[in-house]
Design a protein around this nucleic acid. Structure first.
Lengths: 212, 212
DNA sequence: GCACCCTACGTTGCGTACAACGCTCCGGGA
DNA sequence: TCCCGGAGCGTTGTACGCAACGTAGGGTGC
């Protein structure tokens, strides 16, 4: 049986990631409990976990609210990504199995399809695919400490809702990077792979910074 | 007023850091609650937070236990430190105030004193000083995301109880590094500072790996 | 003799009630 | 008119009780 706390946790996280709960919004325990149909106890536990992930901040006796990030915060997050993700990608290049490569290839291809300019473009649908891609890459790297360090900082939400912010050229670059990364992994070239990841993050940072 | 949960949190963390609660030890909620003189509720909250920090692991319906780390885990942790701490040190070199430098200098000097071979050597007393030194360095770097990423992974505990594992030469090097780091910061030389930090971590890694 | 099931116990998960804290609004004084 | 103090309200923090899950032990059937 999956615990009620666990369900509350993922439900709240999804709400935040989706943007239903805006940054800075106050999170009343009773309100959330009623909305989820549970008591306050699992809600408190879930908020606790989300606080650990950095998605919400709790102030003693004053409740919780969705975290918001200043431009400086964002810049710092990109610094951490830049320090860790290329390293993970390099490791992944040495460890990826054929199955891993196919899965990543599939994700990259689908993102390219639905991200292409035209009537079928669906920027929102890219979000989960992109998340899966980076998550899978981390899993392949098989570096738990590194994944943990990233997970607690690189709150996908911020990155996630910004595909709308990409101009066409940046978006095309970003989607192309995924494909190139798979190629580098397939070649087992750690240097190439990590360089592509650095480009990928640099491109994203430019988009984020420009928009603030 | 500081909350009961907060006190339970720090009390348990200290117990783990001090080694009173050995890695792998099962943590019963009622037992902890009785020992701390509180109810199970704040204990559960505290365990939740400790789990987020990576100090304990909770298994649904099966309770919590103190995390233990395999040699591979340790290696991964050093990888993360190597990716992040030199970067933080470089930033610190550009931002340290005279006050910061004096504080760090003082810490480095005291560690050197009590770490010197002889009757006054006190390896246990180095631990908190070392923790303060690295914490202060992170604070000076003023990179919240970077600090958060490290905090959630580099559970000082592991590093902390290992000064006894240092052979004399490695210990001397480690203590000298602190002083050299201060010198590099004072010179405002980011490259130098980060290089010393890389050496510092490499030295520590060698000690840890050799002892396993 | 071995494997499986079933029962009983101890634990954790959740709900609810009460206590304590913080905020807001109102009133009094300077 | 502005500032300070206090009471009321809504919130969060903690305790406790019950229910559900996991585990270990003994018993039964093959």
């Amino acid at each position: 049986m999956v615990t009620t706390t666990g369900r509350a946790h993922v439900a709240l996280r999804e709400s935040i990631l989706r943007g239903d709960l805006a940054p800075g919004a106050h999170l009343g325990e009773v309100e959330l409990a009623e909305r989820l149909g549970v008591s306050r106890t699992p809600v408190r536990e879930a908020l606790s976990r989300l606080a650990a992930e950095g998605l919400v901040e709790v102030l003693p006796h004053r409740g919780a609210r969705v975290s918001s990030f200043s431009p400086d915060d964002l810049d710092g997050i990109f610094d951490v990504r830049l320090a860790l993700e290329p390293r993970a990608t390099a490791r992944a290049a040495l460890r990826a199995t054929a199955e891993d490569l196919d899965a990543l290839d599939d994700l990259a291809r689908r993102m390219l399809e639905i991200g292409a300019p035209g009537p079928d473009q669906d920027l929102d649908a890219i979000v989960p695919l992109n998340r899966d891609f980076h998550a899978r890459l981390l899993a392949v790297a098989d570096a738990p400490a590194l994944s943990a360090a990233l997970a607690n900082v690189v709150h996908t939400p911020i990155v996630l809702r910004t595909f709308h912010a990409y101009d066409p050229a940046s978006l095309a670059r970003s989607l192309a990077h995924h494909g190139e990364m798979v190629a580098a992994l397939r070649a087992g070239d750690a240097d190439w792979a990590s360089a592509v990841m650095r480009s990928h993050i640099g491109n994203a940072r430019a988009v984020m910074v420009r928009n603030r």
